[in-house]
Structure formats: C-alpha cells, structure tokens
Amino acid sequence: MSIEEFVPKTAYSPLPAGKVGYESPSNIALIKYWGKHGEQLPKNTSVSFTLTNCKTTTTLSYSPLETEKPEGSFDFEVYLENERKPDFEPKIGQFFTRIEQYLPFLRNYKFIINTSNSFPHSSGIASSASGMSALALCLLQMEQKMITARSEEFFLKKASFLARLGSGSACRSISGPVVSWGEHNNLPGSSALYGTPFIGGIAPVFEGFQDTILLVDTGKKEVSSTVGHNLMNDHPYAENRFQQAEKHIDQLLYIFKNGDLEGFVSLVEQEALTLHAMMMTSKPYFILMKENTLSIINKIWEFRKETGLPVCFTLDAGANVHVLYPEKDKQEILKFIKEELAIFCQNGRYISDFAGKGSKALLK
C-alpha cells in the first residue's frame, strides 16, 4: 500500500459541531527502533507489546468555521486533564501540517483537544505513542462521519499511518497484542508506513504477558526521543545496530512460535541495553538511566538466578524499568517487586500492566 491510498478521493459531507473520543494504549518495544529517515520512517524494524492500563484518553470537540483557514494554518487548543497546554500546541500544529493532505477537512473546523494519561507524561513510558495514536483515531473517527465508510482494516491502517506522522512508535499503539513496524522479509505484509499485527504464530505462554512498570523517575526526560533519534544520523555504530535489529526479528519469530522464554529473556534484555549503549556512544553522549535503574536490573538478575523464573527487564528511552514475565508467574514475581524493587521507585510507585488488544472508541 502506498501513501496515495490514504488521500481521500471523494468529497466530504460537512459536519455540525460534535465530539469524538478514543483511548489508546502505550506500547513497549521488545525489538527497539532508534534512528529514522525521511518523514518519520524507521531505520530498522521494531516489534512491541501493546499495553492495556498505560493509556491516553482523548476527546476531540469540533465546530465548523465560517471561513476556511489558510493553507498550513489550523484552529485548535490543547488541554491536558482540562488544563490548557500552549507548549503542546507546536507539536500538534506540526502533526496537522504533516497529515493535512490525508485529512483535507482540518482547516474547516475549530478543534478542542482534551487529553489525559493514566501514567506520568514525558517520563519514558511512550506518552507520545499513546497520545498521538489517540488523536489520530479521533480524527479518523471524525472522517468516517464525513465520507463513505471504509473497512475496519483500512481504518486501522490509516490511523496507524497518521499516528506515525505524529510520533513514530504511535503506529504500534493502534492494534495489539504484538505489533511490528518496518519492512522485514520474514514478516509478510509488514510496512514502514504503518504498524501491522505480528504474523508468525505466538505460543500461549506469551498471551497476556505481564509488564510491571517501575517508576524510577517520573520527571521529564533530560533528552527527548526526537533528539536521540537524530543523533543516530552520524553515529559510528548505527549501521551495525540496524543490522542487529533485523537479525533479532528473525530470532524473535522463533522465540514467539516455540515459547522459548529463555531466548526471550536474553534477547529482550540485550535489546534494552543496546538502545542505551547507542545513547551513551552518540555525539553528544547522554545517559537516561539512573542509579536506581541499575539497582533494579541487578536485583532482577539475582532473583532470576536464584529462582529460575523467566523474568526480565526492558527499558524505553528513560529511567523507568519494565519488568516482563508470564502471567503464570504473576503472584511470585509481584511479591518480589513489592518486597525488593518498589524501594527503588519514586514514592514506591509502579504500574501493573499486560499485553492487550489496542485502542478503543469512547464516543460514536
């Protein structure tokens, strides 16, 4: 499918004032993407678990304008938990500019975007992924009211395509429980334009896989993901990293199909540490992990060695730690988290989550 498929071919029916709403989850990448090219395209394929409890809820109120705005100009306001956030608006304006050719009605309406997160914003739990995917879904829901309805498959593809133009990883938050993004020879139908449900078979042990997110630092990241991605352009190890990620996709295919938990643990932790190694060896270099991040990692390694349980960690672009483990081991591992890991969290906070099905409409 090419980008031309997402450009409307028929005229819109005008809408009176109204409101749409969606909730969309965050996701946690198992195979990381770090580095992009063109217009929000990944330098390597990635695969993620779609989460359930870490989500953004967004409502989009719209009202027709008497006069269409000039090209590249839009009328909108952004609120986070009912508080106006002018500092969010440049990013939304950039997003609208990128998607205008795919949603030509944007200059004909005034929008009030009200959003809230079930987790701390900008702290490395992919709030841009859940936020941009929720907004893209709201806009697509609005489009569905104005144009001949397309199939659900097309709706989800276009939502993922648009979400990517706001935040790359947002394209993996539309569906679930496992989504890939990027073209890979052994993933039929995979695309760099949008996320696709993972194809290749997943063993039952990975169903409902648990992710307990340890909130080591809930403050804003010192270096944004956008800056970090750009530093890969001249990174001395970038090409080797991109090749490694593609090979890891093949390994993950085998792991998922065969229920290889030992292989999963090893691969996921290697991916997490490689991501942060790329940050620490870029120019300028930076470190997003904190002291308590490392303490948690060491505790997990000790616990796994003592118990033999298949628990592992992964990291996003931040200090917080995602503890991954099968649902069948939930009781024992949660006990370990409460007794030995929570002390390393800010105010003892953590979020219990698991791989889920993706986004959900709130308003029709």
Rank of each mutant, 00 (worst) to 15 (best):
T67D: 14
L275I: 09
A272C: 12
C312Q: 10
I297Y: 07
K32W: 10
S122W: 08
S123M: 06
K290A: 15
L341E: 13
S266P: 09
E327Y: 11
N108T: 10
S359C: 04
N44L: 06
T218C: 10
S295V: 12
N44D: 05
E77A: 14
T293E: 12
G166Q: 08
G356S: 03
C345S: 03
K19A: 00
F344H: 08
C312I: 09
S352H: 07
S13Q: 15
F286P: 13
L273G: 02
Q243R: 06
E71R: 14
S46Y: 05
G308E: 14
T45E: 06
S128P: 03
A355L: 07
Q251C: 10
L275P: 04
F76S: 04
V223R: 06
K338A: 15
F209M: 12
A136C: 06
K305M: 13
K338F: 12
A245Q: 12
I213A: 04
K305G: 09
C171A: 14
Y325L: 06
T50A: 05
G131T: 08
A170Y: 01
A159R: 04
L162P: 12
L156D: 03
L253N: 14
P284G: 13
P70H: 11
K364F: 08
G182A: 02
I213T: 12
W34L: 03
L162D: 09
V268C: 07
Y237W: 11
A136Y: 04
F49V: 05
L362A: 01
G201A: 04
A342P: 13
P8N: 08
N53Y: 06
M232S: 00
A163V: 06
N233G: 02
T274E: 14
E5L: 14
G200F: 02
F313D: 07
T67M: 13
N53D: 01
L139G: 00
S151A: 11
R150C: 10
T58I: 00
V205M: 03
L214K: 07
I213D: 05
